[in-house]
């Protein structure tokens, strides 16, 4: 039974990774079209690794990648700040009805299909821009949208940690002469930090990967990488994009390894404390 389970798991993982491997193979394609796979470099006018070199010269793609990273970083920071504050307030709010009403509204972007979140915000901005007769979708609208859909995930990641916190911990700090603000920053915040960090990482990655919501809120002046790729994919995706995606995957892998090491260190530190 156990071996059957193992063989089955390995089979599923192979299926999940096969297209990823093929994506990497395409990034080394010998012809410009990705409809067929070919490694016939002898009769090709491109040298091996040509698409990676081209990716680094493709100004539009690099610009879109930079936009994506900036947007992900800023929206994750803002969502983490707002979300931490909100989680703290929600945890201490004793009015149950109001608390559950706030939680329900916060979670709407998580439950709603992305396309509905996207078009609803597009309607809001379109109307506002029509009224004030100025403005267009772009960086600001994207940032607001990303913060909004990141919020529930940040709060969801911090709430359990708040519940775990010993109620006496902040009180002890107060008894020992801390002001409430000091107690928050010196005692409670360090305790919450691992959860805040994982909320931040989650927000960052969600923002980086989103394309449905971004599609409706990005403008000609500010496009994220997924939106840029989406525009290309309507016609044909050149191997350059596969090269870029491969590099992106490697980058994310690095980030993931880094965050895992950080978390492991944090847990170790907490155990010592």
């Amino acid at each position: 039974m156990k071996t059957v389970g193992k063989i089955y798991s390995i089979f599923i993982y192979l299926c999940l990774y096969a297209p990823i491997v093929i994506m990497v193979l395409y990034s080394f394609n010998a012809v410009r079209s990705t409809s067929a796979l070919s490694f016939d470099y002898a009769s090709s006018k491109y040298e091996f690794g040509h698409w990676y070199a081209e990716a680094f010269q493709n100004e539009y793609a690099l610009n879109a990648l930079r936009n994506s990273l900036i947007l992900a970083l800023l929206s994750a920071i803002a969502a983490t700040l707002l979300g931490t504050l909100a989680a703290y307030g929600l945890h201490h709010l004793k009015m149950r009805r109001i608390r559950s009403a706030i939680t329900t509204v916060t979670n709407i972007p998580m439950m709603n299909p992305d396309i509905v979140t996207g078009i609803s915000m597009m309607l809001l901005f379109a109307t506002v821009f029509a009224i004030i007769r100025i403005g267009e979708t772009g960086f600001a609208t994207l940032l607001i949208a990303h913060i909004t859909f990141n919020l529930p995930y940040v709060i969801l990641s911090i709430m359990p940690r708040l519940r775990q916190m010993d109620k006496n911990l902040p009180e002890a700090a107060l008894d020992l002469g801390c002001t409430p603000v000091k107690s928050f920053f010196l005692v409670q915040l360090p305790f919450l930090f691992p959860a805040i960090l994982s909320g931040f990482i989650m927000a960052f990655t969600l923002s980086l990967d989103d394309y449905v919501i971004s599609l409706f809120l990005s403008g000609p002046k500010f496009e994220t990488l997924p939106v840029f790729i989406f525009g290309l994919a309507r016609k044909s995706v050149p191997p350059t994009i596969y090269a870029l995606s491969t590099l992106f995957l490697i980058m994310v892998l690095g980030l993931l390894v880094f965050s895992n090491i950080m978390q492991a260190r944090m847990e170790k530190k907490n155990n010592i404390n």
């Binding site: 990774y17 297209p19 997924p226 994919a233 995606s245 995957l249």
Partner: peptide, 9 residues
């Protein structure tokens, strides 16, 4: 695999 853009996958 979820980290490769969904469009690319």
């Amino acid at each position: 695999p979820m980290w490769v853009s969904f469009i690319i996958r």
